[in-house]
């Protein structure tokens, strides 16, 4: 009976060969805004334009560095490419109350959302923050990277520009 696991997986894969095609953004997962309004993960897709999703936590130093860097570049990037940034906090109830004061205190201009029991994080198989994803205008994940070091935002910009220049318009 132990053989059932690989058999099941093989059956699923054999039945549907295109499944490993480009990753798509999960739908139907409930997030919350800073004012506790529920919204579905689908609504984050920036129809026709790229979206940057950054998973972060208040206690994560590299996350804060990355979001500080994106914060400085946001206006310029938005004007140039129409990109939208969402910072999704994965803080649990210990530090969740700090998310809004923290983001406001640092003056981040983008939307901050809450994934309080890490449901979206799990659906994307993310186990550590910071973790950043770039979605195209249809919700396909075209780039992702884990961790952060200064200068990683340059690579992100390259990817956004590549997306903007791709033959299929966003």
């Amino acid at each position: 009976m132990k053989k059932l696991l690989p058999i099941t997986l093989l059956l699923v894969l054999a039945w549907s060969p295109p499944v490993f095609a480009q990753q798509t953004w999960p739908s139907h997962i409930t997030l919350r805004t800073a004012t506790q309004v529920e919204l579905s993960s689908d609504s984050l897709v920036n129809r026709g334009h790229p979206t940057i999703i950054s998973f972060w936590a208040t206690w994560c130093k590299p996350c804060n560095k990355e979001l500080d860097a994106l914060s400085e570049l946001y206006d310029e990037w938005r004007e140039e490419t129409g990109v939208r940034i969402y910072a999704i906090a994965v803080d649990d109830s210990r530090s969740q109350a700090d998310v809004v004061p923290h983001a406001n205190g640092r003056g981040w201009p983008f939307d901050v959302l809450l994934d309080s029991n890490q449901e979206l994080m799990r659906a994307l198989h993310i186990f550590a923050v910071p973790y950043t994803l770039l979605l195209d205008g249809q919700g396909t994940i075209v780039y992702q990277h884990n961790s952060y070091k200064d200068g990683d935002e340059d690579e992100l910009l390259e990817q956004i520009k590549k997306l903007a220049a791709s033959p299929n318009p966003q």
């Binding site: 109350a97 700090d98 809004v100 004061p101 923290h102 983001a103 406001n104 205190g105 003056g107 201009p109």
Partner: peptide
């Protein structure tokens, strides 16, 4: 938990 948060300043 109570907080006041505006861009550039917040307290909780």
């Amino acid at each position: 938990n109570t907080q006041y948060a505006r861009p550039g300043f917040s307290a909780s």
